[in-house]
Design a protein around this nucleic acid. Structure first.
Lengths: 337, 337
DNA sequence: CTGAAAGCGCTAACAC
DNA sequence: GTGTTAGCGCTTTCAG
């Protein structure tokens, strides 16, 4: 194993000089720097992570806690995770992958042991048991998601309330007056993950303002569940011409069922989805949708964290503005029959 | 921050005693152990990761390198990653998440810096540029996937050759004589990721033995691509009654198109998929399938790695035996017309 | 069964 | 602009 001391010797300088060349924390003459860099390259030197962490009390590691449970849409989580890892590397940090399994203990373990300098939490519950620990951890953290009480916390999330509003606005502007919301699985609401409720809030408030009748039904994914849900909706509100879907695994079943019933999209009914771009584009009907900006969320989270670690940055909530892209699944409401 | 020294003082013993209580590397009297454990709990002590790594030259971290690219089926990767993280924790290891972005450099960086004790690589190419580095790294590693040359490497993967064979066997036993294979996107074959080719090898060899006519067509995901591919297949081999699909994003489009053309599944045509259980179960027709055992692969990989780190364990290739589950998408071939 | 003490490789004062 | 050196908190001989 190549050590800093060996590099120093090879370059004919002292250990501290090598250290400072690496950190740039004091000015080094060009010639010295080049000799040192040359030695580093020749010897294939990489600073020892443990020693560095011990001496500087900074591990240059960011912990990312992902939910163990996979009833959230997995590709989104993965996309966020990859964006986090990539952005972190760009700032000189590595990423430690923690699953929700350990629960709050993981927070304690990681912060107390100095394994990570900071953490990012995904899938935050409204009343998350990890939050008190974070506030008292003495280490920066960023939540992806929005808990009920955000005091002392930094959060990044899509503005789901605005997202809901945007969806009805779009449908209303096309003349739809009866809109049904295909929600997440009941379990998601029971967990109080927040985002589902917030979308609903946005949908409801805007519907009221615009005079749209709104019907909300949670829905497990899959064909069978969707069939039941759709039947109930059309039974209760036969005049429904607009659908808002916030459950990726219900999207394709819904489209198939509508087709099967002879309801053309978008001629007879319009569908707006809240989902990742990829899902919207690959669906059997290209979907008008509000994208879930997974990459952006991951990137944002890391950047705020790095800012905090550098002593800049503040505690606050960043809600990314939703963007609705019109595709082939939405159109003017059919003339009332 | 609570240190080992503080624990020692609190318990009225020496630092080394505390250390040995923690590691169990020498016998401690029950009373001493209990006093120490009590102090640890009272003070909320967690050993400093950096110091421990420095002193023991073991970080207790396993690096997991996931592909940056996401044209592989993402949920499978995520499932593997989570299984890796969970299993690793059960053995006292944490997981460092590396993306393919850095490429071979990441291998060098992580091993040379002692950041991780070992690595797991996903999405291995047949001729992967990271392999030479791994062989000379002096640190254990496990590949999930199978490169061309496995000497000096440990690999875990599904036995895709056997998987291919199993699929034709099933269809042949039901009387199907003309089978079409909907393959992965052309890019996957061009990258030589191995698994796609191996499935094909298995399919071909077994088809020959069983007198099944096989037609293979790569296919991008999505409805449009699938429509084109299906048309070509049926044009070329109108008598096709069996389909093997190895591209999750082609599954649903295929089913929809067959339905649309009035070909009933499984009465007119049978479909066998190579895909995660979840996809098979949630499809519009419950699919007869060979599952991709993501969890098992992740768990296996970690366990082999831990064995190596403990000085047990050898270099070898573990191919998990495929299991075909019969569901609603396959049935007897229709009588020849 | 327990203690004392020498590092592990690096950072960051403190000197010059 | 560079060198010297005292730790960082832990593991692990070496003693007893």
């Amino acid at each position: 194993m190549v050590t800093l001391a060996e590099v120093a010797q090879h370059a004919g300088v002292s250990a501290s000089t090598v250290s400072y060349v690496l950190s740039g924390k004091r000015s080094i003459s060009t010639t010295t720097r080049q000799r040192v860099e040359q030695s580093i390259r020749e010897l294939g030197y990489h600073p020892n992570a443990g020693a560095r962490a011990l001496a500087s009390s900074r591990s240059n590691i960011i912990a990312l806690m992902v939910p163990l449970r996979t009833d959230m849409y997995v590709p989104v989580m993965m996309e966020i995770a990859i964006a986090v890892a990539t952005t972190a590397r760009a700032h000189g940090y590595d990423v430690l992958l923690l699953t929700g399994e350990e629960g709050p203990d993981a927070v304690r373990r990681v912060t107390r042991s100095g394994l990570a300098d900071a953490m990012i939490l995904m899938d935050v519950q409204l009343d998350d048991e990890r939050l008190p620990l974070l506030r008292g951890a003495g280490r920066p953290s960023v939540l992806i998601g929005l808990p009920a009480d955000t005091t002392g916390l930094t959060c990044v999330d899509l503005d789901f309330t605005a997202t809901g509003a945007l969806c009805v606005e779009h449908l209303a502007s096309l003349g739809h007056r009866d809109v049904a919301v295909i929600g997440e699985a009941p379990a998601v609401y029971e967990r109080h993950t927040g985002f589902a409720e917030r979308t609903l809030d946005g949908l409801r408030a805007r519907s009221r303002e615009l005079g749209v009748r709104l019907l909300h039904r949670p829905c497990e994914g899959g064909y069978d569940a969707m069939a039941v849900t759709l039947a109930r909706i059309l039974d209760e509100r036969p005049g429904t011409t607009g659908f808002v879907v916030q459950n990726e695994s219900a999207v394709e079943p819904l489209l198939a069922l509508l087709r099967q019933q002879g309801r053309a999209v978008p001629e007879d009914v319009s569908v707006v989805a809240v989902c990742p771009e990829q899902v919207a584009v690959q669906a059997s009907v290209r979907l008008t949708s509000v994208a879930i900006p997974a990459q952006e969320m991951g990137r944002h989270a890391v950047e705020r964290l790095v800012a905090k670690l550098d002593g800049r940055g503040t505690d606050d909530v960043v809600l990314l503005a939703p963007e609705l892209t019109v595709r082939a699944s939405s159109g003017p409401a059919p003339a009332a029959s």
